[in-house]
Every structure is written in C-alpha cells, then in structure tokens.
Simulated scan of single mutants.
Amino acid sequence: MVASRSSLSRQLQDYRLTTAEILYHMPDHPGLLQTYVWQELDLAPRFPVLRRFLDFWSSNLDGRLHSVRVAHLDLVCPGRMRHVDALMSLQ
C-alpha cells in the first residue's frame, strides 16, 4: 500500500504514466530490430526517468538503440461535470 501512496503523490507532482516503445538492433543480428516496451511515471516533456533509463541502456547493454516512441497520459485529472436533462425517481 505504501507504493500506491508514493505513486499518487508523484502523480500530484505532475508525473504522468509514460510508455516508451523502444526499437533496438539485436546484438547478434544487427540487421534485425527488436521491440521493448517501457512504462513508468515520468515528467513530460523532458522525461528525466526515461532519459536515465536510455542512458543506462546505451552504456550497459549491447543492443544499439534504433528509435524511441513516447506516449504519456494523465491518470489524475480534475473531475468532469455534465448537465442533466431529466431527473426521474423510482419508488
């Protein structure tokens, strides 16, 4: 339960769910591309958590990066209000 509170507090600090589709060259067969999907809470538009991960990848893993596609989503957002056209009660 502590992790969820931490996650919520990060989301309240503008961290958003970020998904990155990483294409990389396979080390044994550089002509072939492999896909890796990464998902974490991160700050848009600079994405410091993703950048640290990609720096780690570049310096420690054999598969050379080809491309990275990023998407992010607000999980915590203000409530929405709609007007009601009719009100009915059942008894």
Rank of each mutant, 00 (worst) to 15 (best):
E40A: 13
Q34A: 14
A20V: 08
L41Y: 07
L75E: 09
A3Y: 09
L73G: 01
E40F: 07
F47N: 04
Q39S: 15
Q91N: 14
H72M: 02
T19F: 00
S59C: 08
F56E: 11
H83Y: 08
R69C: 03
S6G: 10
E21S: 06
L41S: 02
P48L: 06
D55E: 15
D42F: 02
H72P: 01
L33F: 08
S58D: 12
P30N: 09
R64D: 10
L41I: 02
Q34P: 00
P27V: 05
P48V: 04
L61V: 04
L17T: 03
D28F: 10
N60K: 15
H25A: 12
R16Q: 15
S4K: 08
S6N: 13
R5D: 10
L33C: 01
Q91Y: 06
R46D: 15
V84R: 03
G63W: 04
A44Q: 08
P27T: 08
E21P: 00
R82E: 12
R80M: 13
S89I: 12
R5M: 08
L65H: 02
V49A: 13
D28T: 14
M88D: 11
R82I: 09
R64A: 13
R5Q: 12
F56S: 12
D55L: 08
Y36L: 11
D85F: 02
L50I: 06
L17C: 02
H29F: 07
A71C: 06
D74V: 02
L75H: 07
A20K: 02
M81N: 02
P45S: 11
D14V: 00
L41W: 02
S4C: 03
A71F: 07
S89G: 09
M26H: 15
N60M: 11
S4N: 03
G31N: 14
T35R: 15
T18H: 05
D62Q: 13
T18A: 05
S59N: 08
P27Q: 05
L33Q: 10
